[in-house]
């Protein structure tokens, strides 16, 4: 397996691989996003207790579940780059940070909009809301650190350390916030537990989660390619690509 993987440690090969994968991810995610949105908005049945505004679930839940996964993926990439000194993993981690930040922001904003009619308030200091707010801050810190250094490789190492520190802190933050919140109990969300959901609602939700995951994949590939280009600007193959664009 290592023999097979080895060529992809080279920047050019992974750039090409990303280029071939990118259209597949992009097309399938767009198709599924459209299907999921139409299914969720127009065809899924009404919820028993909530009115039509429950349809926000079809974007809120995918964004919320995947924003945490993106952080873990980012941390894994950092770990790979630290353990095996693989520069490309740094590029992947740098590519993922803004995507994760956007997803977390979407989860928070759609949650606030959903909360307005269902809880009667856009924001409560609920455990889950608060920990997602802190997750946004963690993402913003990582992005800020990426931008603070001129040298991309250096920036990645600094941001990588912060990412790993954040991984240690995510469970601590989660439990601290949960515990803090139980002192003054407010609205809790448990309407998402699978058994309480009919399959007619579950399927469009799963479609949307898959669509979001594919979209994250496509965006990661696009951004990963950019990072690879920026980090290999001196290489002849990048120069060739650049020359083609410059001629136009």
């Amino acid at each position: 397996m290592w023999k097979w993987l080895h060529p992809y440690a080279k920047a050019e090969r992974s750039y090409q691989l990303a280029s071939t994968l990118q259209p597949w991810f992009a097309i399938s995610s767009i198709v599924l996003l459209v299907v999921g949105a139409v299914w969720g908005l127009a065809f899924a049945p009404a919820e028993l207790y909530q009115k039509e505004y429950y349809r926000i679930i079809y974007i809120h839940v995918p964004a919320a579940t995947l924003s945490m996964s993106v952080y873990m993926a980012m941390a894994t990439a950092v770990l790979i780059s630290m353990v095996w000194q693989l520069k490309l993993a740094d590029a992947a981690a740098a590519a993922m940070a803004p995507i994760g930040a956007t997803l977390t922001a979407i989860a928070l904003i759609t949650g606030a909009i959903w909360g307005a009619p269902s809880w009667g308030t856009s924001w409560v200091w609920d455990a889950r809301l608060t920990s997602y707010l802190i997750l946004v801050f963690l993402y913003l810190g990582v992005i800020a650190l990426h931008n603070a250094f001129e040298d991309k490789a250096l920036a990645s190492r600094a941001a990588g350390i912060l990412t790993l520190v954040g991984v240690v802190n995510i469970p601590i933050i989660k439990y601290s916030v949960e515990w803090w919140n139980t002192l003054h109990q407010t609205a809790t969300i448990s309407k998402l537990s699978a058994p309480s959901m009919s399959s007619e609602m579950l399927w469009p939700l799963l479609t949307n989660i898959l669509a979001f995951a594919l979209m994250i994949g496509a965006l990661t590939l696009v951004r990963f390619k950019n990072e690879v280009l920026a980090r290999n600007a001196m290489r002849p193959w990048v120069r060739e690509l650049a020359a083609k664009v410059g001629d136009k």
Binding site: A37, L41, I56, I59, H60, A63, P98, I99, T102, A105, I106, I109, T110, I113, W114, M215, L219, V222, R223, K225, N226, L229, A230, A233, V238, R239, L241, A242, K244, V245, G246
Partner: peptide, 27 residues
């Protein structure tokens, strides 16, 4: 909710896609 999500995602996509061209031009 759907509008904001769509706007944010398209903005991110456009920024990411455009970055490639500007990067290559810089290089």
């Amino acid at each position: 909710a759907y509008g904001i999500t769509f706007t944010l995602l398209t903005t991110l996509t456009i920024v990411s896609v455009r970055r490639k061209n500007s990067l290559l031009k810089e290089i």
